[in-house]
Design a protein around this nucleic acid. Sequence first.
DNA 1: AGCCAGGACTGAG
DNA 2: CTCAGTCATGGC
Length: 221
Amino acid sequence: MDIYRKLLSFFGEQKWWPYDKEYHKKHRTDYRFEIMIGAILTQNTNWKNVEKALENLKNACTLEPKRIAKMGSKELQNFLKPSGFFKQKADRVKNFSKYIIENYPNLDKFFQRPIFEIRKELLGIKGIGLETADSILLYAGKKPIFVVDAYTKRLCKRFGLNIEKYEDLRKYFEKNLPRSVKIYKEFHALIVELGKNYCKKRPFCEKCPLNSICPKLYPES
DNA sequence: AGCCAGGACTGAG
DNA sequence: CTCAGTCATGGC
């Protein structure tokens, strides 16, 4: 919680997860679907590139499950190209869209269930792993699940915590934070922001905002 | 010019 | 189960 406050005061509130409110109002589409697709597209990929892919879909007015589900693979691949891994991502996005349209044409029904039931279902879909599933639950579904990523692991290492496994880390954060969707969202975003700006790789960064409350060594190996 | 990003899957040992 | 290899574009 100290770390959370420190990061929050240093970076300020983050605007996660970005999505196009105007577009969804205009087309009467569900903004949550954009978040879910974004979560898949951003796997090991810079968000700037994801934005371009999403923009391509919006320009074609096709950012909704039923449109994607029946789009040609080639065409979809073209739209997704900027976000990298475009062939497999096209497959995954399409497969996911089909799944949604066939089972949950209304996303309310998808999200109106116990968290871990949804999570289990998401994890059963090809291309959705732990982090992506939890991002969808937290940012699209507003469910209290803490999202762990590579930056989170580095951060913990730096504080001398040798927790390696995803689930253990997630539980650790959830145990030590108030069970608040807002804080979970914000904290994860802040950790990413920290990682992008100050803890790129090994070298210890002189300007890291956490230096005052954390060990100065950046452990590696 | 490299390095790497808001990972997940697969196959091998 | 752990681990390397694979997928690929664009930003910095």
